[in-house]
């Protein structure tokens, strides 16, 4: 009995919706704090943070939990919508729904679907580029070269406090540059690039240099793009508006679903939930707006 009771029953579906939803609320807070560095910090700190987030094992576990939560939340939502539609095979000719419930509470499935579309777009724009894009730029620094001229170098993260490495005009380790270094070092190295940013010696597998991906640059570029920057900013703000409505119902609803209610607690949860639903999406939305309109 207990097995299906905690998986399939109508109340179990509430629990899962609530628990995954609340976990995703925590994720939002973490994500927001990271994003706010785009306004309150600089490129270096933001990129260091991005590197930490893509390499730290604890973060990896959290990120898998987040993916699972999103999938579970969405699948549960689809199940609910299908079953709830089936619970009323013949509809009413006239429904005055606004007399008894809020707009957000009646449209959680639509809002949720829009958020899912946003998440996929968002991950294609940043997450996929960070992980798979061969043209992902590397953090670049201009230094004075040996002959007094300027040299483009990548900012690395390994081997030395100033692990610079030459890069080409596209911000990548060009084949020509690798050949040059090979020649200069008189055959000591047979250099190659792996994982887009790592230069290693093919002879013994030794890692010579790890370049740092420039997430800051692609973020700024997206929202400052001459052609699409305005559209990207507008759509981002719109998505946050959708998120706000979803949270407006979802946050307090999760506590009701878990049975966490009381005369003292419920008003606090509702007030906090409303503040959360407005503040978190608003701060998220402020970032691309700041980048597009105010960042020099």
């Amino acid at each position: 009995m207990a097995k299906s009771a905690l998986l399939k029953s109508s109340i179990a579906k509430k629990y899962w919706m609530a628990l995954t939803g609340l976990f995703l609320c925590l994720f939002l807070v973490g994500h927001l704090l990271g994003n706010l560095q785009l306004i309150f910090s600089d490129a270096k700190h933001f990129n260091d943070y991005a590197l930490f987030m893509t390499t730290n094992p604890a973060v990896k576990i959290l990120s898998y939990l987040t993916y699972i939560s999103i999938i579970f939340h969405a699948v549960d939502g689809i199940l609910l919508t299908v079953q709830n539609k089936a619970a009323r095979p013949v509809g009413y000719a006239k429904v005055n729904a606004s007399a008894s419930s809020s707009l957000a509470s009646r449209n959680m499935a639509v809002l949720g679907t829009l958020i899912l579309v946003f998440i996929v777009t968002h991950m294609a724009n940043f997450w996929a580029r960070m992980h798979f894009d061969e043209n992902m730029p590397i953090v670049v620094k201009e230094i004075n070269g040996g002959m007094g001229g300027k040299q483009r170098v990548a900012v690395g993260t390994k081997e030395s406090p100033n692990p610079y490495f030459q890069i080409d005009e596209n911000g990548r380790f060009g084949t020509k540059i690798l050949e040059d270094i090979k020649t200069q070092s008189m055959g000591q190295y047979d250099l190659a690039v792996r994982d887009l940013t790592t230069v290693y010696n093919k002879k013994d597998g030794e890692v010579i240099f790890i370049g740092q991906k420039d997430l800051y640059k692609i973020t700024i570029d997206l929202f400052k793009d001459k052609k699409w920057g305005m559209a990207a900013t507008g759509l981002y703000v719109l998505a946050m508006l959708v998120l706000a409505f979803h949270l407006l119902h979802g946050f307090q609803s999760a506590f009701q679903s878990m049975g966490v209610t009381s005369r003292k607690l419920t008003p606090i949860i509702k007030t906090f939930g409303t503040a959360f639903a407005i503040l978190v999406p608003a701060l998220f939305a402020a970032i691309p707006v700041y980048i597009h309109f105010f960042l020099k």
Binding site: S10, Q83, N84, A86, A87, S100, S101, S102, H249
Partner: peptide
Amino acid sequence: VMNMVRQMDEEGFGNCTNTGACEIE
């Protein structure tokens, strides 16, 4: 609670999403 909820689900009622319309009406 187990038996009543199981019977409720078997009867084909939908799932609650906390819209609160029931309380109002």
